[in-house]
């Protein structure tokens, strides 16, 4: 999984590279646009285009029946039933392409999410770094080596019952830092970004947790033999603003890609 994550992250880093120093809206626009078009191709190739058109026509046809038979209450109910059924048929037509789109869209969303869900720390900001340790680890033996540029604000808090340790760290200078957690000769690394660029962030890394690994593609997962089961950093949420409106990045991606796809579906002859 780490290899796949590394390859994909490198690929997306390449795509995002030209936009590194621009307002995050621009790369979002570009990626959404390209994704919208590409997914349109996939949708066309994997769906029953005639079936979709037929299902849509049925919905539209029954829709017109509402106007045509507006004075007949029984026909009206009949029409409502038909609209519902043809809508289900229409949605059914989308299931197959959805299955094909599941993986590529998941990858794209995860990669965009890694960059837009959170932002790196700014100089002067603090964050909490937490370790979830294996049951046999002695909490007081775990040490954190802070690189230059980061400082510990308060001593670590250890909760033995939960096997957790937390540190409050302050960022003093800009950079992507590697934090090293040490325990009896074993070392676990975790990156911490203090930078004013659009970079992928991993808020968590884990060992035996595929969900965390999939969702945090920027860093290697922990080895099975590691003394740590989960490392987490609390990054601030990224504020995404478009035309003066604050919105969630996912909504923006949804809207942008839809607009792109809508604009090109006629040109590309895709029935959606």
């Amino acid at each position: 999984m780490d290899i796949i994550n590394a390859v994909l992250t490198a690929f997306f880093n390449l795509i995002f590279m030209p936009f590194k120093h621009l307002d995050p809206v621009w790369p979002m626009l570009a990626i959404s646009f390209v994704t919208g078009i590409l997914m349109l191709f996939v949708f066309k190739a994997t769906s029953d285009q005639k079936g979709i058109k037929r299902a849509k026509n049925l919905v539209k046809g029954h829709f017109l029946a509402i106007r045509l038979y507006k004075d007949d209450i029984s026909l009206m109910f009949d029409t409502m039933k038909n609209i519902l059924l043809s809508n289900l048929l229409y949605m059914k037509q989308s299931l197959r392409p959805m299955l094909f789109l599941l993986i590529p869209m998941g990858i794209v969303l995860i990669q965009i999410g890694a960059r837009y869900e959170h932002r790196p720390l700014r100089i002067g900001e603090s964050t909490v770094l937490s370790l979830k340790l294996n049951d046999d680890v002695q909490l007081d033996q775990v040490r954190l080596d802070l690189p230059e540029g980061l400082s510990l604000e308060i001593p670590p808090v250890r909760v033995d019952a939960k096997k957790e340790i937390s540190w409050r760290i302050k960022a003093n200078v800009s950079g992507v830092f590697t934090l090293a957690f040490k325990y009896h000769g074993q070392v676990v690394d975790k990156q911490l970004a203090v930078i004013d660029e659009l970079v992928p962030l991993s808020a968590e890394i884990a060992g035996n947790n595929l969900g965390v690994t999939v969702m945090n593609p920027n860093e290697h997962s922990l080895t099975e033999a590691s003394f740590v089961s989960l490392v987490s950093v609390v990054y601030p949420a990224r504020e995404f603003e478009f035309l003066g409106m604050e919105t969630h990045w996912l909504v923006a991606f949804f809207v942008f890609s839809m607009v792109a796809a809508f604009s090109f579906k006629g040109v590309l002859g895709v029935e959606v």
Binding site: T35, G36, M39, L40, V42, F43, K44, S47, I52, K56, V59, H62, F63, I66, R67, M80, I83, L84, N87, Y90, M91, Q93, S94, P97, M98, L101, L102, P104, M105, L109, H248, L250, V251, F254, S257, M258, A260, A261, F262, K265, V270, V272
Partner: peptide, 26 residues
Amino acid sequence: AWAYIGPGAGFAFLTSFLMLFASFFM
């Protein structure tokens, strides 16, 4: 919102919803 699987399927669900909404409204 993460249930959105690409613009094609997104359209399908959005259109479907809009059609249902509009038909029920009508």
